[in-house]
């Protein structure tokens, strides 16, 4: 019982931070919240997928319809992602490198697909190309099927992933201004040369970032694709739709096995995304740092 211990001043705390117990409490709350809503759902996917052992897991993925769904998902992403990549680059070039009227409206319209429900994204193409749609009878007369076939799935996927590359590139290219390009052009470079040798190296990580997010959504889209797919087994089911079918058939392990592949893709996406942010954060658009 020394007097020194009694007289010891309270632990000093900077006036611009919280007391230690408050800090710890807030960290625990944050951990519990993220654990409950993010970590546990992720874990349960893998636990359920491997519930029957590796053999059952492999057997589930070896199923013919499941394999067809994996192929279709890859095919759809292989069309939708490059299409939106080309669009994103063109849109960013037009919006960031020139001053013209109506630019704000154009930027807003590019973001529009993000505020539309995925189900509506599917519905609009049914209204356009379905059997009762505006172009339905004409398409039928010419033997072209879009709805309940692969073209419809591709269109719906393009719609829901429409803004990803553009919204990453537009702020980035606006930040970088037009001086580099003007210098290149005045030194005699053509438009294509300017883009490939001046602009592209400046935006390559941002471009990759946009493509990464675009691809994750393209492979994982459910609502929009579900409306236009028709659910023909082995033909028009992407992986998310195959999960639904297996789940509704009570093929629990198989459903989670397919789900675990998509969860792995999501994890890989997050890892690459974080790596891009840590390594090249200063070369990405403001919002994604």
């Amino acid at each position: 019982m020394s007097d020194v211990a009694l007289a010891a001043p309270p632990v000093w705390r900077a006036p611009t931070t919280e007391a230690r117990p408050v800090k710890l409490g807030l960290i625990v709350i944050a951990l519990l919240f993220l654990g409950l809503f993010l970590v546990i759902p992720l874990m349960v996917v893998f636990v359920e997928a491997l519930r029957g052992g590796l053999g059952a897991f492999a057997a589930a993925l070896g199923d013919q319809d499941t394999f067809a769904s994996i192929e279709l998902t890859l095919l759809v992403a292989a069309i939708a992602v490059p299409a939106n990549l080309v669009f994103g680059v063109a849109a960013a070039w037009a919006i960031a490198k020139y001053e013209f009227r109506g630019k704000t409206v154009l930027t807003t319209l590019i973001d529009l697909p993000f505020s539309v429900s995925p189900v509506i994204a599917g519905l609009i193409y049914v209204i356009m190309f379905g059997s009762q749609g505006y172009f339905g009878p004409w398409l039928k007369g010419h033997g072209v099927q879009i709805i309940f076939a692969v073209p419809g799935i591709v269109l719906a996927t393009i719609f829901v992933t429409f803004p990803f590359v553009a919204r990453e590139l537009i702020p980035l290219m606006q930040e970088q201004g037009t001086q580099d390009e003007e210098a290149a052009v005045s030194l005699g470079a053509s438009g294509l040369q300017t883009f490939l040798r001046v602009t592209l190296p400046n935006v390559k990580w941002g471009l990759m970032y946009g493509v990464l997010l675009c691809n994750a959504r393209a492979m994982g889209e459910f609502g929009a694709v579900s409306v236009v797919s028709g659910h023909i087994r082995g033909q028009t089911n992407t992986m998310p739709l195959q999960i639904e079918i297996l789940y509704n058939d009570y093929q629990w392990v198989a459903a989670f096995a397919v789900a675990s592949l998509l969860a792995l893709l999501a994890l890989l996406t997050l890892v690459v995304k974080s790596a891009l942010e840590w390594l090249f954060g200063h070369e990405l658009a403001n919002g994604s740092r």
Partner: peptide, 8 residues
């Protein structure tokens, strides 16, 4: 939640 497919 942005990366994980909604069906999963």
């Amino acid at each position: 939640p942005f990366a994980l497919p909604t069906a999963v």
